[in-house]
Design a protein around this nucleic acid. Structure first.
Lengths: 138, 138
DNA sequence: CAATAATTGCACTTCCATTGCAAGTATTAG
DNA sequence: CTAATACTTGCAATGGAAGTGCAATTATTG
């Protein structure tokens, strides 16, 4: 098990207090978060810093962006099984219409999608919407 | 073949000049359009009117909204084969990374997606990104 | 320790989506 | 036909999210 410091360093990201905190925040959340989620969690920090931290994480492939159709970009840590830098490794996301949370279903790979003649598929975004286990259960 | 007037009336939408024009515009376009596309096509009309017209069309199920991941909502007429009011009728959308256009692949139905135990799937949004036939071909 | 590079915070800006209100236009009842 | 009512349109303004420039601070390297 690597420390967060090691993870960051291995990706050429300088270790700062801010980045450690944000990484930890993302790691603790099991759902994808918006920028304003992070903002609310770190009221002392500046919006821009949070924004740029996430962007850095994204560039260095330790976070991936999720477009769940709510219109607001969400982010989640790339971990165990998520190799989102590889175009062909695509997992799907589930958005709960009840609690409004979005989670990565990392084990669920997206089936091969056929596109018409002349079209070249480079990337697939698949979001399933419905009721999540927590909300449907009881 | 119904006239546009008949289409609108059958959906309980009052026929106005504005609505006929916007419907015609959407019908002529074979790609999904953004609000500002419409805005540029109808510079004389007010943004709000265009916005509300599209929203009315959407409510009455003659237009469906597409979230292609560009961050800007696009709209397309529901026609021949698109029954988007029925949750189970889901076609996919193709977004071209080159020309930035998004089209409905109405004939291409989304395969059944399995979700984990406890999750209830109500809706699926699938956007394939890549190069469209016009851009890839010649 | 000095020079350099990266990070953070502040102040803006832009863009899209959305709403309130007033004016105009169409529809319906009397 | 006219008055009352409902719907539509345009204007103005708001809010939220994303993104950028610049200065100040902090870290890194020689």
């Amino acid at each position: 098990m690597q420390t967060i410091e090691q993870v960051l360093e291995s990706k050429d990201i300088r270790v700062t207090a801010m980045r450690l905190l944000i990484y930890k925040f993302l790691a603790e959340k099991e759902v994808a978060v918006t920028l304003s989620d992070i903002e609310h969690a770190f009221v002392k920090a500046d919006r821009t810093t949070l924004y740029r931290t996430i962007k850095t994480f994204e560039e260095k492939d330790i976070v991936h962006q999720i477009d769940d159709g709510t219109g607001i970009t969400k982010y989640a840590l790339c971990e165990n099984g998520c190799n989102c830098e590889i175009e062909t490794d695509l997992h799907l996301h589930f958005h709960c219409n009840n609690c409004n949370e979005t989670i990565c279903l990392t084990e669920h790979k997206i089936p091969q999608i056929k596109v018409p003649e002349g079209f070249v598929s480079e990337n697939v975004n698949l979001v399933v919407k419905g009721i999540c286990d927590k909300c449907s259960g009881q």
